[in-house]
């Protein structure tokens, strides 16, 4: 079976996989990074969102072998030690979660949204840009508030 090597959350990792092994399987089953969730497995729900070379992707629809040599960041790699990433902190502060299952994907997608759309986001933009992430608790109201606050906080954090 082929082997694959990549960087995950800043660490060099490698493993033996099949051609059909998905990135999310490699993360969860090989590396035991279970923060990345599988909700639908049909690229609808966005629970499996990670950053691949800095860009948000649904890791249930990316082959592990396609990520050879790439840099992957998962929800486990977002915080700086014990200090939460500003987007994580905003989700905590605004209670942007109910059951929490979609939350890792929401946060990774929100950080990608800031990359694409900047730090000053209105509610309409956030709702449109979150189309790839589904919360089955339907707790979108606080998620939108959290993304808005988190995006603004990322600007301050960067400055």
């Amino acid at each position: 079976m082929p082997t694959v090597a990549m960087t995950v959350n800043g660490k060099a990792v490698a493993g033996t996989v099949e051609g059909r092994t998905l990135l999310v399987q490699f993360l969860r089953e090989h590396l035991k990074l279970t923060g990345t969730h599988v909700g639908c497995d049909t690229s609808q729900c966005g629970c499996c969102t990670v950053h691949l070379n800095g860009t948000g992707v649904k890791s249930c629809t990316v082959l592990a072998l396609a990520c050879a040599g790439a840099s992957v960041v998962t929800i486990e790699g977002l915080a700086d030690g014990d200090t939460l990433h500003p987007m994580q902190e905003a989700f905590r502060e605004h209670h942007g979660l109910q059951c929490g299952f979609c939350t890792p994907g929401m946060i990774m997608s929100a950080v990608d949204m800031v990359r694409r759309k900047g730090n000053d986001l209105d509610a309409q933009t956030i709702r449109k840009q979150l189309e790839g992430n589904i919360c089955r608790c339907t707790g979108y109201h606080n998620i939108v508030l959290a993304v808005q606050a988190g995006a603004a906080a990322m600007k301050t954090a960067k400055a």
């Binding site: 992707v57 990316v62 694409r116 790839g132």
Partner: peptide
């Protein structure tokens, strides 16, 4: 097309 994460790929 699709959603932002799909459009990224």
């Amino acid at each position: 097309i699709g959603d932002p994460l799909v459009r990224n790929r």
